[in-house]
Each structure stands twice: as C-alpha cells, then as structure tokens.
Design a protein around this nucleic acid. Structure first.
Lengths: 227, 227
DNA sequence: ATTTTCGTAATGTGATCACATATCTCATAT
DNA sequence: ATATGAGATATGTGATCACATTACGAAAAT
C-alpha cells in the first residue's frame, strides 16, 4: 500500500496538483488517503530521494522548488538524455508504434485546444513516455522521469500561457514527423527544441513572478509561507 | 539517524562492499548498525527508489543487479551526462581546482599501483565527483551519482583485473590533462573513453562469469542463492 | 503599531508490537 | 538418493505510542 500512496503523490506531482514549496503534513496526507502515517512516510522518503519533496531538516515538509540554476541543470540533462532516447526511438520505431504515438498526439492537441492545463501536462508526459519506451532503455527513462517529477509543479505556473501551448504543439508536431520518417537526428533536434522552448517559457514566467512578488511583498514577515 | 544508515549503505555500495544480488535483512542491518529496524527500512526504501536495492515484492530484499541491457543504458546515460559535466568543468576550472584534482589523481594512481580495489573504486568516484562539482550543476551530478550507485557493486567483479586499472589510469591522465588545458572537447572525449573502457571491461568479465557459471552449475537447486 | 516573549499545539522520528506471507528445514514416500 | 509436502521459522509491512523539537499564536512591553 506504500506503492499506492507513492503512485498517488507521483501522479499528482506530474499533473501539477502541487505547488512548488507547498507545505504538507504526513498525518493530513495519511487521513486524506485513508491509511496510517507509516506508508505516507515511506513514500515521502522515496520521493525525497528523488528530490520531489524536501524534509526541511526540522519538522517541515514541503514540495521541492527549483531555483533558476537548477532549472538550467534540469534542462541540460533533459536535452542530453531525452535527445538520446529520441534517437533510439526513431531507430527502433515500428509501424505498430506509429498509431499509438499518433493517437497520443491527437489527445495532446485536444488538450491544448481546450486549454486544459492539467490534462495537457499529463498527456504531454504520456506522449513523451510512450516515445521513449520505444527506445527500450528503461534505466534512462527512469532518470528522465525523475526530472519530470521535479519540473511538474513548476509547469503549473506556465499554465495560463495559451500561446506556449500552441508553440509547444509545433515542436510536438516536428517530433511526430521525425519519428514517422525514422529520422533520428531530426527527432533529437525536435525534442531539444521542445525542451528548450519550455525552459525558456518557464524562465520568463518565473522572472516575471519574482518581480511581481518583490514589488508586492518587499520584505518577508515571520510567519510567511515561502510560496 | 536515518541519514546515518543511508550514508553507510550508500558508501558501502560505492566502495563495492556489496555483491550484486546479495540478500539482506532489515533486522540484521539494524542490529549491525545499532539502531532499530525503522531507520533501516526508510533508508532502504530510499535506496530502492534509486534502484540500488530491490524489494523483490515478497519478503525478499537484495542488492540490485544489472543485466547486460541495463549496463548498456547506464553507460550511455553516463556518457551523455558526465560528458556534459566534463565540458562545464573544463570551462569553469580555476587554478584553485588544479591542485585538488592533481592530488586526487595522485591518490588514484597510488591505489592503482597497490591494486587495492576498494580504495581504487572509492578514490575513482571521489576524483570524478570533485571534477564534476566544478561544473556547478548539482542536479546533474545527483543523477550521475545515482548511476554510480548502481554500477558500484558490479565493479567489484572487475577488481581482479589489474590491467584494466592501469588502462583506466591512462584515461584519467587524459582527463587531468584536458582539464589543466581548459580544453572542454578533450575533457568530454577523455571522460567518454574512461566510461566506455570500463563498460567494455565489465561486459567482458560478466560474459566470462556467465559462461563459467553455466558450466559449473548447469541447473539451479531449490535453495540456491542467485549469486 | 511593531517587536519580543512565552506557552501551547503540532509535526517528524524512533521504537515496539501484531500479522500475513514466503522461505527454509526436516521428515516421509517413491 | 531424490523429490515432495507439511510444520516452523523468519521477514517485510502496517499500526500505534511516546518523545524531542519546532513552529505558531497570543499577549505584553516598547
């Protein structure tokens, strides 16, 4: 049942149901999930190991939040790893995979048109995951999913930007085309574009948010919640 | 105190003090470390999340072991990630770092000459870690260290191969030279060589071990320990 | 009105216990 | 001698409890 809690939290993270820095308590989560605190503790330790949550040393548990430098690191690592997976996927792709990837692309387009951010986030990860599974390199995919876990909460902030969703769909279209053409270099390039675009958009949004916050709340009071 | 247990196990893993597939029990570890089973459980769950241990679903806990395909994945991921870190390290390197890296190189050479495998493994990771810290990309370094955790136990098998140790030192010499020259492409190439060489050697040793095992013990009895 | 201080409530941590289940051992049958 | 089966042991899991520490909030002093 620890796994059940783990899945729930992991899925919630990727779907953007947690805000960066949001505070949680083990007991509340346990009650919400109808279990004892113990499985929640173990699941949280596991997610802490993956960097998704932070046990702030002292009686404080919160959703992890990434600074600018960390976002840059994640972006670089994703470009390296997902680029590799995209190449392999293009090389190993068979006609059976074509339909599934096309179908996922369609669902992604639908979510983008409906501007349903949670659905878009979820489908986006499913789209990429399905592609990378074709590469048949589960260890690398695991590392990549760990990074997704970290940026999941951040992407909620990008949500309201409908323009980014459509721009992102262009990159996804290029990924799809490259895969259907079995063009490995093009697949890597398209995935790189997608990641870089998302990172740029996120960086812009965070900058703006930081500015607004510094104007609205120039100094922090004692009991202020970090986010 | 969970962290204490975690560090102990993690260090032991990297130093090659655990054999792939080796079976463990929570209670034994707790007794050996002088704590209750609880911290051990949490530390193990954390290490399971990183793939270092396997909770075989059912009352079975063992050190993770990698098959050939997984070793290939880890190799590819390491080339991608550590190559990136090596480039950044060469770019950001200052004269202060030169001495430290040189010193670590000296200790590595000493361990190689003494054919002290545990010391060599440990110093090898310290050498690479120190270099990658210069890259100032802790998220990427974290992912890389996770991979080290997985291959740590495997490298014990390579231990007896003194020839590999000296060959590996040539690659390390090239890494050192590239860094001192602030030559990013050369640093990446040298690190790639190092990783590929180690992977090849490991692959050879595992092939040979598999063959010997299939000859020596053609069929497995009921109570046999997998390794 | 702001800052400081102190008391209370809450939270993570560790320990112990009970339980379901798989594993191991030994006896038995072939 | 080997294979099979049943009893006993051991192991991971979950729950509950006690505790140290910390964060929170109200009250008081400036």
């Amino acid at each position: 049942m620890t796994d059940q809690v783990y899945r729930h939290l992991r899925d919630g993270l990727m779907a953007g149901r947690f805000a960066p820095g949001q505070r949680l308590t083990i007991r509340d989560l346990a009650e919400a999930l109808g279990s004892s605190p113990m499985p929640v503790r173990e699941a949280l330790r596991r997610l802490q190991a993956e960097g998704a949550f932070e046990f702030s040393g002292t009686a404080r548990l919160s959703v992890g939040q990434l600074c600018e430098a960390q976002l840059r690191d994640v972006r670089d690592a994703r470009v390296a790893l997902e680029g590799l997976l995209a190449e392999h996927a293009a090389a190993r792709m068979t006609w059976v995979d074509d339909d599934e990837v096309r179908q996922l692309y369609g669902r992604l387009q639908a979510a983008a048109d409906a501007v349903d951010v949670t659905a878009y986030l979820w489908t986006n990860f499913a789209f990429h995951r399905r592609i990378y599974q074709i590469a048949q390199a589960p260890m690398i995919l695991g590392a990549v999913e760990n990074f997704w876990l970290l940026i999941g909460p951040c992407f909620v902030l990008v949500a309201p930007d409908a323009a980014h969703l459509q721009r992102s769909m262009e990159a996804h279209r290029q990924i799809l085309d490259a895969l259907l053409d079995r063009d490995a270099p093009a697949a890597r390039a398209a995935v790189t574009d997608d990641i870089m675009q998302a990172a740029n958009c996120l960086s812009r949004v965070l900058d703006k948010a930081a500015k607004e916050r510094s104007v609205a709340a120039p100094r922090r009071r004692r009991g202020d919640i970090p986010e």
